Simulated scan of single mutants.
Amino acid sequence: MSAMKIKKGDTVKVIAGKDNGKEGKVLAVNAKDNTVVVENINKVTKHSKPSAANQQGGIITKEAPLHISNVMLVVDGQATRVGFQMDGDKKVRVAKKTGKVID
């Protein structure tokens, strides 16, 4: 499996789907399914029965996963593709649009 180009904590822009054009922070990355959960993006309503954890039950809104191909990393306010470079003996992410090292 190749390295993930988007990591938890990154700011991303949605490029496809119902939330096209919106930006948010990545809350979780699932490398196995190639999905990301983005803050306040792809909100779904879920009906939950009362349980020990949730005494009240009812309708809950939460973020659903998006496929990683539907989001783009935002660096300096611009959506950009991500590449990799070797920085000495360390592999780092690089913004394709600016050539800037991300982390």
Rank of each mutant, 00 (worst) to 15 (best):
M1K: 11
M1T: 08
A3H: 10
A3S: 11
M4G: 10
M4Y: 02
K5Q: 08
I6W: 06
I6M: 01
K7L: 14
K8T: 14
K8W: 01
K8C: 09
K8I: 14
T11W: 08
V12T: 02
V12Y: 05
V12W: 02
K13A: 13
V14P: 00
I15C: 00
A16M: 10
K18E: 12
D19A: 12
N20P: 00
N20H: 07
N20Q: 13
K22Q: 15
K25C: 06
K25E: 11
V26W: 03
L27T: 03
A28H: 07
A28F: 08
A28K: 13
V29W: 07
V29G: 06
N30K: 11
N30H: 07
A31M: 08
A31R: 08
A31F: 02
K32V: 13
K32R: 13
N34R: 13
N34S: 14
N34F: 09
V36D: 00
V36S: 08
V37E: 03
V38L: 04
V38H: 01
V38M: 03
E39S: 14
N40P: 00
N40F: 15
I41E: 01
N42D: 09
N42A: 14
K43P: 00
V44G: 03
V44T: 09
V44M: 09
T45A: 14
T45C: 05
K46C: 03
K46E: 12
K46V: 15
K49G: 00
P50I: 11
S51H: 02
A52G: 07
A52W: 07
N54R: 08
Q55S: 04
Q55R: 12
Q56Y: 13
Q56R: 15
G58L: 03
G58F: 08
G58C: 05
G58W: 02
I59T: 15
I60R: 08
I60K: 09
E63C: 15
A64V: 02
A64T: 05
L66T: 04
H67E: 02
H67W: 05
I68S: 06
S69V: 11
S69F: 10
S69Y: 05
S69C: 10
N70C: 02
N70F: 09
N70W: 06
V71A: 05
V71D: 04
V71M: 04
M72R: 14
M72H: 07
V74I: 10
V75F: 05
D76L: 12
Q78I: 14
A79S: 15
T80E: 01
T80S: 13
R81P: 00
R81K: 14
V82Q: 01
G83F: 05
G83C: 06
G83Y: 07
F84S: 02
F84E: 10
Q85Y: 10
D87Y: 10
G88E: 03
G88H: 08
D89T: 12
D89W: 12
K90M: 09
K90I: 14
V92A: 06
V92R: 12
A95Q: 03
A95L: 06
A95Y: 01
K96H: 12
K97N: 10
G99L: 13
V101K: 15
D103L: 14
